[in-house]
Amino acid sequence: MDKLDIDEIPGARADLLCFLVATLAASHSLTYEWRVDHLVESGRIWLARNLIRMHWLDRVLLGQLALKIAKRELKDAGIAVRQSDVQALFTGEMTLNHASTVVQKMMKLCKESL
């Protein structure tokens, strides 16, 4: 099956950004480190799961934006991810849990950042 470009799918870029932000925030709340390796692998996983391709430079730029949002803008927006919140951010299949109010707030912030 051929992969579609990320910009051919409405909302895909915002969904990937939010997934990366949630992954970074979750990882930080558990390890107290900003793990760039988790960011890179999470991006690869999301793209493969959704059968989407994205130019490597766009992935780098989106990853940098995700790190900026996770490090600075979540706190400024009043979004805190505690260890007890981590499981609620994701479904059992490790996709975003769009029913979570924290994910909804993150998605709004991500859409505004694009």
Rank of each mutant, 00 (worst) to 15 (best):
L4W: 05
E93T: 12
K71A: 07
C110F: 03
T95C: 06
L16K: 03
D5C: 05
R35D: 08
V21N: 02
A88T: 01
T101A: 10
T91K: 04
D85E: 06
I69H: 01
L114D: 07
D15S: 14
A14S: 15
K3D: 08
D85C: 08
A48R: 13
K111P: 03
I69C: 01
A12V: 00
K75D: 15
H55C: 07
T91S: 08
Q64E: 15
L67F: 11
I6C: 01
L17P: 15
R82M: 04
V40K: 14
G63W: 03
D7F: 12
T23R: 15
E33W: 04
L65I: 05
D85K: 06
S100Y: 01
L51C: 11
R82F: 09
D5N: 12
R59T: 02
L114V: 14
M1S: 06
P10L: 04
T31C: 00
W56H: 15
A77F: 05
I69K: 02
Q83G: 13
L114Y: 10
A12F: 01
E41T: 09
I52M: 12
V21R: 00
L17V: 09
I9K: 02
L65C: 04
N97D: 03
T101L: 09
L96D: 00
E33P: 03
L51Y: 12
T31V: 01
F19P: 02
D2L: 09
K68M: 10
K75H: 13
C18S: 15
R72P: 01
L47M: 13
R44P: 13
